[in-house]
Design a protein around this nucleic acid. Structure first.
Length: 377
RNA sequence: GGGCGCGUCGCAUAGCGGCAAUUGCAUCUGGCUGUAGACCAGACGCCUUUAUGGCUACGGGGGUUCGAGUCCCUCCGCGCCCA
């Protein structure tokens, strides 16, 4: 993989770049749709291409559980398995340490939505999994068997899956973890990072993952320590504060320290309205489940905000999802029709909404690239 | 004409003497940011000083009982069977 910086903004840390991989070039900043189980739910790979997607991210933990990396390897890798010709990333499973661990225990996402008195303190363990020095003992949600994933295991699985860019196995920490817990977790993530680098034999690009939660000293330490390691790029993960300002500030701490020449991927963040400040903080790629996830809940993202197509009022609305959008869904279908299909419990509206949302997200980043090119950002 | 069965929140269901009353659908309102979830949570008789509060409620009327959606009588409506 090669990363080329085409332009650096004079107004901010925003940058325009090219990420070249064996499966093609990604123009950055780029949005990366989430294909957890080697599919963008409801769409074929051909349709995903038509949304303007440049790169997808699949998930090591989920693909390891099902169908297992051997099956994928037997197809010659994930690209041919899912018939996706363009670049691919795999997430390491580090997020599942959180989402199936403390995230589940406390019903919390990685963005603190409401203050609570609950705290995760040093040496505390989640209920459903066990975090040790060597990795994490998960329990499969499919058959209940124990599944162990550590830095070595994750890398070996990711090599078998065969994405262009893979991530180091990390622990994504919770917004309610205290400084002590976050620091210990961070040091372990750093030790795991070394093991990942040592384990990898393939020529895939490997990104280290910066952690450190909401704590400036830890974020900076993480960026500094990982930044000196021989990674091809960096993921920025973990919790992201409790409002957009603190999220943005947190990114500056990190991009201040990370080597400028290497690509940065912000893990799991990216509503439309987040894109500009993320780019301004120096983020090159980012993934987010929002467009696909919300689509299956009947929500369209539009230039006027979110639109809930399940609301009965939509049944009489003959406008397209977004009057400013030129995707095939907006050219050919009305809100009324999509509302009808949702109420009739048909599966097609989930596809139409997924397509539109992805198209809209990809259009928005394309516009962002234009804005950087034209010096607006 | 005779026999039997059934009428409970928009629809469908539970209930077999302590009930403003189960569940599903529908409806409404929230939530969702490296995806286990076409998901999750809440509301859904009316009123208010939102309360271990008041009122009105299980087809209509009457009765038994401290207490009835639940038992009895009767009427109305619906269904099935026999003539």
């Amino acid at each position: 993989m090669r990363f080329t910086l085409l332009k650096k903004s004079k107004k901010s840390r925003a940058r325009l770049g090219l990420l070249e991989t064996a499966h093609g070039v990604v123009e950055t900043p780029a949005f990366v749709p989430v294909a957890t189980q080697a599919v963008i739910k409801t769409l074929t790979s051909e349709e995903v291409l038509q949304t303007g997607a440049q790169m997808l991210i699949a998930n090591t933990f989920h693909l390891h559980l099902r169908p297992g990396e051997k099956i994928i390897k037997s197809h010659g890798g994930i690209h041919s398995f899912m018939n996706w010709p363009k670049p691919l990333m795999t997430d390491s499973g580090g997020f599942q340490v959180f989402s199936l661990g403390f995230g589940k225990d406390f019903g919390q996402g990685k963005i603190l939505k409401q203050r609570s008195n609950e705290k995760i303190e040093s040496d505390q363990q989640p209920k459903l999994l066990k975090i040790t020095e060597d990795g994490v003992a998960f329990r499969s949600y499919i058959d209940g068997r124990e599944v162990f994933l550590g830095p070595k295991e994750s890398i070996k699985i990711q090599e078998a899956i065969g994405a262009d860019i893979i991530f180091a196995f990390d622990e994504c920490t919770s917004p309610i973890a205290d400084h002590d817990y976050t620091k210990k977790s961070l040091l372990k993530t750093h030790r795991w990072a070394e093991i990942c680098l040592k384990t990898k034999k393939s020529d895939q690009a490997l990104y280290g993952v910066v952690q450190g939660g909401k704590f400036q000293d830890l974020r900076e330490e993480s960026a500094r320590v990982l930044g000196k390691m021989d990674f091809n790029g960096f993921g920025i993960g973990g919790e992201f504060g409790d409002d957009k300002k603190s999220m943005s500030r947190m990114l500056y701490w990190v991009t201040d320290v990370l080597p400028e020449s290497k690509p940065r991927h912000l893990l799991g963040i990216g509503y439309i309205e987040d894109m500009p400040w993320m780019a301004q903080a120096g983020i090159d790629t980012f993934d987010c489940i929002a467009p696909t996830h919300y689509a299956r809940r009947g929500i369209a993202f539009t230039s006027k905000g979110r639109l809930d197509l399940a609301k009965s009022a939509m049944l009489k609305d003959k406008k397209p999802l977004d009057t400013a959008c030129d995707c095939f869904v907006c050219r050919n279908y009305t809100r009324s029709y999509i509302c009808h299909l949702l109420k009739a419990w048909e599966i097609t509206p989930l596809k139409l909404l997924t397509f539109h949302n992805l198209h809209y997200f990809n259009q928005s980043v394309a516009q962002l690239r234009e804005d950087i090119k034209n010096g607006k950002i």
